[in-house]
Structures are given as structure tokens and as C-alpha cells.
Nucleic acid binder design. Sequence first.
DNA 1: TCAAAAGTGTTAGCTCTACACCCATGC
DNA 2: GCATGGGTGTAGAGCTAACACTTTTGA
Lengths: 240, 240
Amino acid sequence: MTQSSVALGNDNGNGNVIRLAVSTVIFALRPAKHPSKKWDIVMPVVLRTRDPHEGKWALPGGWLREDEGLAAAASRTLAETTGLHPAYLEQLYAFGAVDRSPTRVVSVLYWALLRADAVQQRATPENVEWFSVDGLWGLAFDHDEIVQYALWRLQNKLDYSGIAQGFLPELFTLSDLREVHEAVLNKPLDPANFRRQVEGSGEIVPTDQFRKGSHRPARLYRTNSEVALASHGPLKPDTQ
Amino acid sequence: MTQSSVALGNDNGNGNVIRLAVSTVIFALRPAKHPSKKWDIVMPVVLRTRDPHEGKWALPGGWLREDEGLAAAASRTLAETTGLHPAYLEQLYAFGAVDRSPTRVVSVLYWALLRADAVQQRATPENVEWFSVDGLWGLAFDHDEIVQYALWRLQNKLDYSGIAQGFLPELFTLSDLREVHEAVLNKPLDPANFRRQVEGSGEIVPTDQFRKGSHRPARLYRTNSEVALASHGPLKPDTQ
DNA sequence: TCAAAAGTGTTAGCTCTACACCCATGC
DNA sequence: GCATGGGTGTAGAGCTAACACTTTTGA
């Protein structure tokens, strides 16, 4: 083995160049049709108007530009698709199988949460459509698999982080938060136990405001700004 | 917003090309100097012989080739550095900050485990050195940060997966396994509780063989092939 | 017989879960 | 008052951590 064959940077500077895309699985909430739960999880997808996979729906994304970081590219294409900025953005995975596209493309995937109040009435470009994640199949490329993986990450992250708050506005009740959890996990949760669990976590702080409605007013909470939405370990939140 | 500005693949095919590197944080065990624990965690790093960062140590890696997947590139450069194949390989993160290198480079990082018995007496290329992760600072680029993140992932993964077995040969005792956990977590573990915990997990299966030594023979176990070393969720183990 | 590691048993304390119950409001 | 969601209390199951104890070997 020659010395030059080893080690990044003992290269000759002629590294192969690769086309690098950044795409994002964007999660948002929409009032559920079926009254058994309050919210459906939806995501925007984009109609492909060219080959490969013309006529199929694909995750929004675009090419990484020379002068922007990966998360910045995700944020930019997300804004182009939805007109919005994400409440939460995290890298999902880098996909680079040789045969995942007819031409070689490496894709860095992100996943994002949008706040329910922001999504309300946003004009969407005509080639963008929002679908419930439940029956969402037949996407272009390997995007079906990617969506399932992103959903798995979202469900996992609920357990040990305050990620669900990313869907909610600044002030919310414990019922609001529980309904988000129920929508993501697809199962009902005990209100009493949920309350204690989330109150003990320190992820939210009570305010002295209440939401008046049809019944007993519910206390409003806000996200504890001392605690990050999610733990990234020793990595800084995401400004690469 | 024009339609062409939205969506991966409604591109014009002229996506910017990027230099894409794949590097790996490679963990192995080495008998500890200090007798308080049995193993030290070590990793190979490569001396940079060119700018940028000439004279510093860097993580082993190389440029992604046109005809290989990301994991394949990690495996290849790992073999070039150590002469070995990894017992476990997992993607860590994609780093793409614009200023992380003087010229724009996106790096997909992997982390890997080597089996203790394989590492024993392997000839190492002369520009490669193995260091304990404990006091390992001053690496090239952002590699210090990357190493800490990889170590954090390794420690986390110990709790909920049979990853520690990746360090061990086919047959091992419960003490062997516990000593690996102690080395990674840097704290002593109760042998009795550790036994029950790992026996109940189904990650290992007892054999009818015993290791004879200086004291009461210890039963040998092997990895349960029905259970993967680690959970990747709905993603297939790693052949991208 | 003794030291040391292998392996088993036991208990106190904690968390989790299910569910009973009370509280405050609009109608 | 009464229906409804907000909010509190509590007992049993199950898990965890600490540590006492027994077993089996080599020396």
C-alpha cells in the first residue's frame, strides 16, 4: 500500500465530483377527517414534470449550491415549496446507492416540522400537493422508504424530547400537546399520566394564562427556552 | 414562484457538482495501561502530508468514487487504513458547512467497530497511528468534534442494542462483554445486574462451552444471529 | 483451604399504568 | 343541574440498583 492511497487529504486534490441534492421530509398537522383523533400528519410533495419518474410525486428539494451549507439548502428549498420556515429541522440520512437514480446522485435528507398555525392558509405552488402520510405510497425514486424512515425518527424522538412542540404555536394547552402525540403515535394516551410525564420533563413551563372554551379553562404552557427541542449530543443544533 | 424553482428533479439537470469525501471514525479496543479497567478505546488516524492541515492527524477517508455507494467507500478506505473489515459500520452524519475546509468539501462520516482479535497484530501503514480516544485532540479540520459525536453515539447505542459484541470474537464470556461496556461507558458495572440485563435482552445465546482459566470456568456465549447488532428502524442495515 | 471469579437470590425504592375521583366552566 | 374536559390521587405491577450469598475452579 502506498502512502498516498491512505487518508483524506493526502489526496491529490482531484477527487471525483458528485451531484449532491438536499431534500426534506416536511411534516405538518391538518385537522383529521375521522373524529377518532384530532390531527392527521401531512406532508407536501412535488409533481415531477421531467424524467426520470415524470408524473410521480417526489420530496421537495434541490441541488446544493456552492455557497450554502446543507441545512441552509434544506431550509431554502423548504421555503420555496411551502413559503414557510420550519419550527424544527434535523438531518435524517445521506443516501448514496449507485442505482437509486439513473444518473449518480447523492442525496442528503432532512426532516422538518411546521407549526400548525403557520400552515393554516398558505398559498401553495400549483405543482405542490399536501398528502396524509398514512396512505402515501408510490413516490419517485426511493422516497417511499425515506418517508417511512423519517416517520420512524419522528415517532422515536417524541419519547425523549420536546419535539412535538414544534407543531404547536407559542402558547398551547396540555391537551393540544397530547393530541399531537396521539396523532404521531397513532394511539390514545392517558391524559393524567401524560400530564405528569411532560410536566416532570421540564420541557414546558406554565404561564398564568388560560384558554377559555366550552368547559373548564385550561392552563396555557410555553416551550422552555432553556431546553432545546431535541438533543443532538455534542453536535451543535444545525448550522452546517 | 416559478414551477421550475420547486422540486428535486424538476431541475434542469445542471446541478452544481460537489467534491464528496467519505471518512470513518474507527473504534477498537486495546489492553488498558491503567489496571482500573481492562480496555482502552483506540482509533487509527492518518498523518496529513499536504496542505491544508499538513502535519496534523486526520480521520481516514477518501473521495467517493463514481461507481460505489457511501458505505462501500467507507469500507474501502477503512480496509486501506487498517487492512481489516469492520464488524459493524453505520453512517454518522453528513457535514457540509461551507467553511469547514479551504475548498468546498461535503463529508459523509461513518463509524465502525473492529473486533479485538482481528486488530491484534495487523501491520499498519507508516503514516497511520493508533491513539486512545481519551486525550485525542488537535485533529485536522472539524475532526475533533466528529470524534466526540461518534463516541457519544457509541455510548448511547450500548444501552439499547447489542453493539458491544462488535468488538468481541465469535465466542465470549459475560465478563468479556461487561468489560467492553465498562470501557465504553467509563464506569464499573454490577456483574450480577449486567448478567440479567443482557441475558434477558435476547441479544446473546449461551453455548455449552466454557472458558477455563484461573478460576471457575465461565460459560461462552455467541451473538444471536436472529437479532441485528443494532436497530436502524425501517432502513436496511447499510448497503447504500 | 483459600482467593477469586462465576453465578443466584433478595429487597427497597422507583417508575409506569390504569383508573377512580374531584374541579370549574358553559349551557 | 349536568355534561364535558381539566386536573389530582392512588394502588398494584414491574423494573432497577445494591449487595449478600453460594458455587466452582486453580493454586
